[in-house]
Write a protein that binds this DNA or RNA. Sequence first.
DNA 1: ATTTAATTTTAGACAAATCTAAAATTTAAA
DNA 2: TTTAAATTTTAGATTTGTCTAAAATTAAAT
Lengths: 220, 220
Amino acid sequence: MKYSASKEDHLKAIFHLQSEQGVVTTNALAEALQTRPASVTDMLKKLKEQKLLLYERYKGFRLNNEGKKVALQIIRKHRLWEYFLVKKLQFGWDEVHEMAEELEHISSKKLVERLDAFLGFPETDPHGDPIPDSQGRFTSPRQLSLAQLPLNKVAEVSGISRQTTEMLELLQHKKIGLGTKLEVRRKFPFDNSLEIKIRNYPPVTISSLVAKNVLVKDEE
Amino acid sequence: MKYSASKEDHLKAIFHLQSEQGVVTTNALAEALQTRPASVTDMLKKLKEQKLLLYERYKGFRLNNEGKKVALQIIRKHRLWEYFLVKKLQFGWDEVHEMAEELEHISSKKLVERLDAFLGFPETDPHGDPIPDSQGRFTSPRQLSLAQLPLNKVAEVSGISRQTTEMLELLQHKKIGLGTKLEVRRKFPFDNSLEIKIRNYPPVTISSLVAKNVLVKDEE
DNA sequence: ATTTAATTTTAGACAAATCTAAAATTTAAA
DNA sequence: TTTAAATTTTAGATTTGTCTAAAATTAAAT
């Protein structure tokens, strides 16, 4: 099956919101896609029609297995192209998103597989996000945000999702960077701030906002 | 400016027909694009509107400078991607066209330039067609097959690609050899055979198969 | 438990690209 | 040169994806 770029964009955005927020709303999806809620509703009906989505009016929606499968293939392509742009064409990690948004809609299955091989079957993209394999499985250990990490479990920083100068500056000050090994010592429910322990340093506190944007991966 | 994939397809097809056949007709364009003459007319009006085409109803049409510039950029992208697919992803030269048809619409100017550099600034694509530079100029001296030579343009035979005894025998009989100066007088769409004129000789006809294997270069 | 507010959906419209069938125009032929 | 044939264009419809404004539904607040 082949779907329009717009349908693919919707599936991908639903997938992301679904795994980040757990639940997806019409408004959130419209916001993510820079479109209007009414347009989203229109598209939801079409996706349901094509059996990619479970949807009942006013009751919410979520991807079914087929929808997830399609979304994962788009994500796979997006991340492989990002990897290509950064590692082969020498782009910075912060300038490749837009281009990958276009390239992810190139349809040839065979092209994706050859590209994957050409790149040496990378497991994560330049931002540290895992690249699904051709069956949509994450071969790589999966990434979660610091906010989601269980207490007292050692993990390694593998990515930063929102890369603003201000945040990077803050992280640098707290000695947190790619590859840093750390664990969460306490969670304060009042403001969802966390106390973090990095080996050989005294504990530091970070806000919920920062925690959400620091991605880590479990030790095997 | 950014144009739709369909507009780009039309511009490119017009460019090719224009340089191969000298003149382009609505029907020929519809045929080349696998669409209907009525649809072509619709698009011609839009392209004229956007000042990419000189067009007057029933009187014919041709690209203006801006239109040619856009077409050449699409062709540039197409051929660079073909080169990439063959040289880097190990595809055969005969399986890359479809993929390049999609890739040629990726818009980032910067991506094209980086890709060009990554590939080592190739001068021709895997089929031997020249790759226009970023200003739309053909940097490479061009060798093309007799089948690609525009009508009534004098050229000199510069090579024979498939050298079988049978073909050389045939060419000798028609008085065609290295260095022969000739021009194409007519093209018969029915079987793609050509009528060739060599100075001081009466016209001769050669088949499409032969034409494809005789390489010529333009007089400067 | 009503009322108010927020969310979501519908109804109806629009732009882009395409189509079919019919009309206009040009070209070729008798 | 008048008729016939081929080409090209128009008129009107269709599909896809989008929009605005208004209505329907659900959630929140007093």
